[in-house]
Amino acid sequence: MEPAELRSRRLFAQGLRGPVVGAERSGGVRSSRADATASPPPTTPEGVVARALAVQAQEYLPAQWGLAQRLPRSMRPDAAAVGGRIDEGAILRTHVLRPTWHFVVPADARWLLELSAPRVRQQMAGTIRKAGWDGEAGSRAVEVVAREVAGGHRTRGEIAEALVQAGLPKDGLLFVLLIAELELVAISGANVGAQRSYAAFDERVPAGPPRPREEALAELVERAVLTRGPATVRDLASWSGFTLRDVRAALVEASDRTGGRIERIDDPDETELWHDAAVAAAWSARDATDATADDDPARIDLLQGYDEYVMGHAMPRAYLQPPGIAAPIIPEFPLHAMLAGGTMIGRWAPVVQGRRATLRVVPWRAFARAERRSLDERLDEVAEFLGMPSEVEIEPVAPA
Rank of each mutant, 00 (worst) to 15 (best):
Q14G: 15
Q14M: 12
G15L: 04
G15S: 10
G15F: 04
L16S: 04
R17P: 11
R17G: 07
R17L: 12
R17A: 13
R17T: 14
G18N: 05
G18C: 04
P19F: 01
P19M: 01
V20Q: 05
V20P: 00
V20W: 05
V20E: 04
V21Q: 04
V21C: 03
V21F: 12
V21D: 07
G22L: 13
G22S: 11
G22F: 13
A23Y: 06
A23D: 09
A23K: 11
A23E: 12
A23W: 09
E24Q: 07
E24H: 04
E24V: 15
E24A: 15
R25M: 08
R25C: 07
S26R: 15
S26C: 07
S26Y: 11
S26F: 12
G27A: 12
G27F: 08
G27S: 10
G27D: 08
G28A: 14
G28H: 09
V29D: 07
V29Y: 01
V29Q: 09
V29C: 03
R30W: 05
S31R: 13
S31M: 07
S31I: 06
S32Q: 08
S32W: 10
S32V: 13
S32C: 10
R33W: 08
R33T: 14
R33V: 15
A34R: 12
A34I: 14
D35E: 08
D35W: 13
D35I: 12
A36L: 10
A36F: 12
A36I: 08
A36N: 09
T37C: 00
T37G: 09
A38M: 07
A38R: 15
A38N: 00
A38Y: 07
A38D: 06
S39L: 13
S39Y: 10
S39P: 06
S39K: 10
S39I: 06
S39V: 15
P40S: 15
P40Y: 12
P40M: 13
P41R: 14
P41Q: 05
P42Q: 03
P42M: 02
P42Y: 01
P42R: 00
P42K: 02
P42W: 00
T43A: 04
T43F: 00
T43G: 01
T43R: 12
T43D: 02
T43V: 13
T44F: 10
T44V: 06
T44P: 05
P45V: 09
E46L: 02
E46H: 10
E46N: 02
E46Q: 05
E46P: 01
E46W: 14
G47K: 06
G47C: 12
G47H: 08
V48G: 00
V48E: 00
V48A: 00
V48M: 03
V48S: 00
V49W: 06
V49H: 05
V49G: 02
A50K: 00
A50G: 04
A50P: 00
A50C: 06
A50D: 04
A50R: 03
R51T: 06
A52H: 13
A52Y: 00
A52R: 03
A52T: 03
